[in-house]
Deep mutational scan, measured.
Amino acid sequence: SDFTIRIGDRTLHLKNVSEEILKILEELLRRGIDFEELRKIVEELIK
């Protein structure tokens, strides 16, 4: 499924993301992860 994360004025667009990855990202966001850290993790996950 497609997913968009907005943190402040920044946006991260994800396409064809599995439910498992979404759950991980949601947990990281709940813990207050930094946007740049989140972006790096996402890039690793979707390689």
Rank of each mutant, 00 (worst) to 15 (best):
S1W: 07
S1C: 04
S1E: 15
S1I: 14
S1F: 14
S1A: 10
D2P: 00
D2T: 00
D2R: 00
D2G: 01
F3K: 07
F3M: 15
T4K: 04
T4M: 07
I5E: 00
I5T: 01
I5H: 01
R6V: 14
R6M: 08
R6L: 05
R6S: 12
R6F: 01
I7N: 01
I7P: 00
I7G: 00
I7H: 02
G8T: 01
G8M: 02
D9E: 12
D9M: 02
D9Q: 03
R10P: 00
T11S: 12
T11D: 10
T11W: 02
T11F: 04
L12G: 00
L12H: 03
H13A: 04
H13V: 13
H13G: 02
L14I: 11
L14A: 03
K15S: 11
K15I: 06
N16K: 03
N16D: 10
N16V: 04
N16Q: 05
N16M: 06
N16A: 06
V17D: 03
V17F: 03
V17G: 02
S18K: 08
S18P: 13
E19H: 09
E19A: 11
E19M: 15
E20Q: 11
I21P: 02
I21L: 11
L22Y: 09
L22E: 05
L22G: 08
K23L: 12
K23W: 06
K23C: 06
K23V: 13
K23S: 13
K23Y: 07
K23P: 12
L25S: 02
L25G: 01
L25D: 00
E26R: 10
E26A: 08
E26N: 10
E27P: 07
E27W: 06
E27K: 05
E27C: 06
L28I: 09
L28M: 13
L29I: 14
L29F: 04
R30Q: 13
R30H: 15
R30F: 09
R30D: 06
R30P: 04
R30I: 14
R31L: 08
R31T: 13
R31G: 13
G32L: 07
I33Y: 08
I33L: 13
I33N: 07
I33C: 03
I33D: 09
I33Q: 06
I33H: 09
D34A: 12
D34P: 11
D34W: 03
D34Y: 06
D34T: 14
F35V: 05
F35C: 01
F35M: 08
E36L: 04
E36H: 08
E36A: 08
E36C: 05
E37S: 14
E37T: 14
L38F: 13
L38S: 01
R39M: 14
K40P: 08
K40A: 14
I41H: 09
I41P: 01
V42P: 00
V42K: 00
V42E: 01
E43Q: 10
E43A: 14
E43S: 12
E44W: 06
E44P: 07
E44F: 11
E44M: 09
E44A: 11
L45P: 03
L45W: 11
L45Q: 08
L45R: 05
I46F: 15
I46T: 12
I46P: 08
I46S: 10
I46R: 08
K47R: 07
K47S: 12
K47Y: 09
K47L: 11
